[in-house]
Design a protein around this nucleic acid. Structure first.
Length: 506
RNA sequence: CGGGGCGUAGCGCAGUCUGGUAGCGCGGUUGCUUUGGGAGCAAUAGGUCGGGAGUUCGAAUCUCUCCGCCCCGACCA
């Protein structure tokens, strides 16, 4: 075994992190680039993951009193113009529909015809179109609250795209709620952030920090933006979900008014909150390794693969019967309220290639079963996250599967937490701050810094200075900021009531 | 939108400078030998060299033009 260790993904994380990411997406068959610039094809394995994410979140939305609805893909340009900051934030990345017909052109091709009186914008987000609808629905305080979510695609014409992390079109959910009072809307904003936090940690096994964005990082048009931020394996932060308190800004822009209990006309208070297919990118960069994807069992498209190993064709039938018995036993069991999903892979391809294909896809448990196992009434299994391989009795393989998958889920969260802890640091001087973000680890050149917990004076100038000099931004202001002690701003030395989190980001 | 690069087989590329039969690796298919963590040998299929125009006896190669993509900058879930 003097052979050099070969990884399934090349380059490795330490060699070239961004390229490693692209290779994992491809090798795990999660998605690929499409004929349309900046848009992705989400492949069945990746889409199944998204479906599981959807199912989990949707259940949590319903449990907090929300219902689903669907609003149009197209937004009249004039709607977008109603909220000044909102326009400014999104105008540069809007796809615009100007015609409604194609006609044969002079050189045989098709040319747009039938110009629209008013151009339609393909939704980059739906505050304005939903606001216009809500304005009609809301008359009285008795109509409130409105608690609606929609699952949809949106388009943001990005210059630079990366599969799942930033594409021109992506899938997401956007919740849009209307409330009678400011306090209720604030509570809603915070409640949905808590939903996201819970989902990230207990479903995705991805630890997140929660807090509020600075003014500069806020959603265009929002009064405040709350967020969950996760640390990727290169030490960068990923904004994984946001929940916005919109105050009365959009209510005023869309004329969402109601008659109050006192009989006065009042503007309502609104919120919006969303997570997208970007979560998949976060899962990859949290859990995947140099052999490809590692699926957290709770969201894995399938949990277990059983691979027949047949040396002598005469054994085949008996081995297959043995495998089907095991598969059936597993399929009647549950993990995280889902039936355990088992795939029997009897494709006629090389055993090595078959095994590696499942490693790369990140299936939690894979097992090789042949005549030897049949004779011993055992199973030879491997656990994807740790790489541990062992022969276990058939009975234990089956009876402990739920426990095994739950343990794996818990271990993945713990490892991610440990990684974040190892790459987080309280930093109090500009010198240390700079060196933290320019760290050159010979073993891991892509990894620079992580989360720096430093004091900040709340000044936009200090935030901007760090951003332009080091490409480091304030990812969030913790809710319990003052609990970690006051100090001096790491940039200007001014008074700070507590630390905030600085990091490079996606 | 600025600066740089690339379009040749399903994928990755050589060939272009210096014009002369369309190549290599991987993958695919078939057969045989193999099979307990990425097998070997052999045969075989597969291309409008991004599109158009031009120069030439002859263009992947030279010229012009259009199109697309990638990288680096300014913006972003």
């Amino acid at each position: 075994m003097g052979k050099k260790k070969r990884t399934a993904i090349s380059p490795t994380r330490s060699e070239n992190y961004p390229e490693w990411y692209q290779q994992v997406v491809r090798a795990a068959e999660l998605a690929e680039t499409s004929a349309v610039r900046g848009c992705m094809v989400i492949k069945p394995w990746g889409y199944a993951l998204w479906e599981n994410i959807k199912a989990g979140l949707d259940g949590m939305f319903k449990a907090t009193g929300h219902v689903n609805a669907y609003f149009p893909l197209f937004i009249p340009k004039s709607f977008l113009e109603k909220e000044a900051e909102h326009v400014e934030g999104f105008a540069k990345e809007c796809a615009v529909v100007t015609h409604h017909r194609l006609e044969e052109g002079p050189d045989g091709g098709l040319v747009p015809a039938g110009e629209l009186e008013e151009p339609l914008v393909v939704r980059p987000t739906s505050e304005t179109i939903i606001g216009a609808t809500y304005a009609k629905w809301v008359q009285s305080y008795r109509d409130l609250p409105i608690l609606i979510n929609q699952w949809a695609n949106v388009v943001r014409w990005e210059m630079r795209t990366r599969l799942f992390l930033r594409t021109a079109e992506f899938l997401w959910q956007e919740g849009h709620t209307v409330h009678e009072t400011e306090a209720e809307a604030l509570e809603e904003t915070r409640k949905m952030l808590d939903v996201y936090e819970t989902f990230a940690e207990s479903y995705m096994a991805m630890p997140v920090l929660v807090g509020e964005k600075t003014e500069g990082e806020r959603f265009p048009g929002a009064v405040s933006t709350l967020c969950i931020e996760a640390m990727m394996q290169d030490g960068k932060a990923l904004q994984a979900g946001t929940s916005h308190f919109l105050g009365q800004n959009f209510a005023k822009a869309s004329e969402i008014q109601y008659q109050s209990r006192e009989g006065r006309n009042e503007y309502a208070w609104t919120t919006s909150w969303g997570v997208s297919t970007r979560l998949i990118g976060g899962m990859i960069m949290t859990h995947a390794d140099d052999d490809g994807m590692v699926m957290p069992p709770r969201l894995a498209p399938q949990h277990v693969v059983l691979m027949p190993v047949v040396r002598d064709e005469a054994d085949r039938d008996a081995v297959m019967v043995y495998i089907e018995e095991i598969a059936e036993a597993l399929r009647s069991m549950k993990v995280f309220d889902r039936l355990i999903e088992v795939v029997v892979d009897d494709r006629d391809i090389k055993p090595g290639e078959k095994g590696w294909s499942w490693v790369k896809k990140g299936i939690p448990i894979r097992a090789e079963i042949g005549q030897r196992e049949l004779d011993e009434q055992s199973v030879f299994m491997a656990r994807r996250d740790t790489g541990e391989k062992e022969g276990v009795s058939r009975d234990l393989f089956v009876s402990e599967m739920t426990k095994r998958l739950e343990l794996m889920q818990a271990d993945m969260l713990e490892r991610a937490k440990a990684f974040r802890k190892a790459h987080s640091k309280e930093i109090d001087s500009m010198e240390d701050f700079k060196s933290f973000f320019t760290m050159q680890d010979e073993e891991y050149p892509e990894l620079q810094g992580g989360f720096a917990w430093s004091h900040w004076c709340d000044g936009a100038a200090c935030e901007e200075k760090i951003s332009s000099e080091l490409a480091v931004t304030i990812r969030l202001i913790p809710f319990d900021r003052d609990a970690n002690g006051s100090g001096a701003c790491v940039v200007c030395g001014g008074a700070s009531v507590g630390r905030v989190v600085f990091a490079k980001s996606y």
